[in-house]
Design a protein around this nucleic acid. Structure first.
Lengths: 345, 345
DNA sequence: TTGTAAGCGTTATCAC
DNA sequence: GTGATAACGCTTACAA
């Protein structure tokens, strides 16, 4: 009906009190006579009053907004993090604003600047590279932030990630136990620290067992590209007995390459995927996979951010959560002759 | 360095002009002497000035924010819509704020109210039900909005959806051409109009061809539940020669059920999936699927919203985009004996 | 316990 | 073409 939103003054007038009192009632910032408070609440309800957050923001300088910046909103891992964080803070009076850097530093910079203009209470960033040059931009604002997933070296803020070394280790361990010694690692890009750590966990585990060093293939951050890279590699090299994928997209790339090449799983090639999605289970040969604890990651991010927003000044915390191996049907002991097989074309 | 963000006054002082002039320069709302403008821009750059959007919001009453409300942020179809919209408006000075209603009307209501408190310039809603009771809440605000995907009857706002009848038709047509007459439709919930329309397209196409009516199975909106429903149905009924899934989650459910039941695809049962994701291609038997044109949906949403924000008062537009059938390997003619097969247990 | 008033940063209106 | 000034809705000292 009314063209303009109801303001705090409308409520005050209707309840016969001052705007300040309405504010105190709505925010509980100061005790108010119960009878009055009831009258105010009644008036607010009748008018459908919803405080305009612009006024509050202007006055307090802090929006009840959490800005989330991810490298790719089409990557289900990143959106699952967004979802996990959203479900934590939605009932705490915060709103979430999202942007994608498209894996590009210039875009990261400009999207970040745009979101910062809202003076959000906190920030969640999955940087597009380990350089994280936009960190300076953030730190000038003094806004609390958490770096997630991709941890830059020398982080001066809270970080939340998985134990990437261990993630690699449990994958390699599983393959070793099955008897694999000839392993292809389908990495995304080795310029990312988290990927390098996963590789390190694998390399170390294999080395300790006296197994030959695996091949680390950089397959990129996109499904299509990963598929052709892995396909080509399988064309040009003796086959491994197992592939260990280090991201969800390289998992898909490996699956596509194996399918195109008509190579069955788990024999002649076993496959361990990364992350855990419904489609990994919905297959004739469900995928063995390294699961990242996404809900826990989201909860940890919010816990740190919330603490900082509320004034926690402890030194930066670096939270690491453990991945777990979901053993399903895509991994099996290599068949005896596979150990010496070469690409028969 | 400085604890407080630089304001327009800081810039004005440094450039030796008035705040109003700075505003005019930054927004281009009024012509300004080029020399002065340059000085202002220089000062802004030096100070790293970024206009505080709270002030602007308070003054203009409209935030350059688009609020997006979806039923489930863990459903890749919905997040792909968010991503498509985000990529449209990110370079137009808009920010996107997202929330999930979790498929619940009360949550939808409260999340919507919370987002509305930011006085967003526009709204994108995928309602959690066709009732869409929150519509009243939105319309009181006079904020332009677009209803996407799930179209309520009697919509008084712009809508963007796919041609659901045709989506069903092309799926059924494909199966008919292959010779299938015994079809199971894996629907999500029949209370949703878009699902009913897909069913209608199927039913009509089959009827016109003189084929028997298919079975419409309500498998729900979640993967796990859909999997068990379809599994059970296959236990208790003679097998169809083809399954036509009407959402991404029922596609996964069907795949999981078939895998659990150790039923191969496309024989004895062909399968058409809904939506088009990388995992559908990354299989030994890539999925034939009905693809929704997600980027185009996002673009259409933004086009309508943008027009409304800029004052377009044309009657509500109801945009329908066409789905396309991606024929891959999960559909094939039924084997001769399948026409009379029953569940052999 | 409640009311009053200042002020947050911006933009729009008005003189100049 | 530019500068002063008021106003947006809210919170929060401070006064009553």
């Amino acid at each position: 009906m009314s063209d303009k939103p109801v303001s705090i003054r409308d409520v005050a007038e209707r309840a016969g009190v001052s705007p300040g009192t309405v504010s105190n009632v709505m925010n509980g910032s100061k005790p108010v006579n119960p009878a009055l408070a009831a009258r105010v609440r009644e008036a607010a309800r009748e008018l459908g009053y919803q405080a305009d957050r612009a006024g509050a923001l202007l006055r307090t300088g802090k929006a009840r907004i959490i800005a989330v910046l991810v490298p790719d909103l089409d990557n289900p891992f990143f959106t699952s993090i967004v979802s996990a964080v959203e479900s934590c803070l939605s009932d705490q009076g915060y709103e979430i604003i999202v942007a994608s850097s498209n894996g590009d530093e210039a875009t990261e910079q400009s999207r970040l600047a745009a979101m910062l203009a809202w003076r959000p209470a906190g920030l969640v960033v999955i940087p597009c590279s380990d350089e994280f040059p936009t960190r300076a931009l953030i730190e000038r604002t003094r806004i609390p932030y958490v770096v997630a997933d991709r941890i830059t070296r020398d982080p001066s803020a809270d970080t939340v990630s998985v134990d990437n070394v261990n993630a690699g280790t449990i994958g390699a361990q599983h393959l070793l136990e099955l008897g694999h010694r000839n392993i292809l690692v389908a990495a995304s890009v080795l310029s990312l620290g988290n990927i390098r750590e996963r590789c390190a966990g694998i390399a170390e585990t294999l080395a300790r067992a006296g197994a030959p060093e695996p091949t680390f293939l950089e397959a990129g951050n996109h499904f299509e590209r990963a598929a052709v890279r892995i396909f080509q590699w399988l064309e040009e090299n003796p086959w491994p007995t197992a592939i260990l994928a280090l991201t969800n997209f390289t998992t898909l790339g490996a699956l596509a390459a194996l399918a195109d090449r008509q190579i069955a799983v788990p024999r002649p090639i076993s496959l361990i995927g990364f992350d855990d999605y419904a489609w990994m289970r919905a297959r004739a040969t469900p995928l063995t996979a390294i699961r990242q604890p996404v809900p826990e990651i989201g909860a940890a991010i919010w816990a740190r951010l919330k603490a900082r927003i509320e004034g926690d000044t402890a030194p930066p915390a670096h939270i690491q959560l453990e991945c777990s191996l979901k053993v399903r049907a895509s991994t099996a002991p290599p068949s005896p002759q596979d150990g010496i097989s070469t690409n028969a074309g």
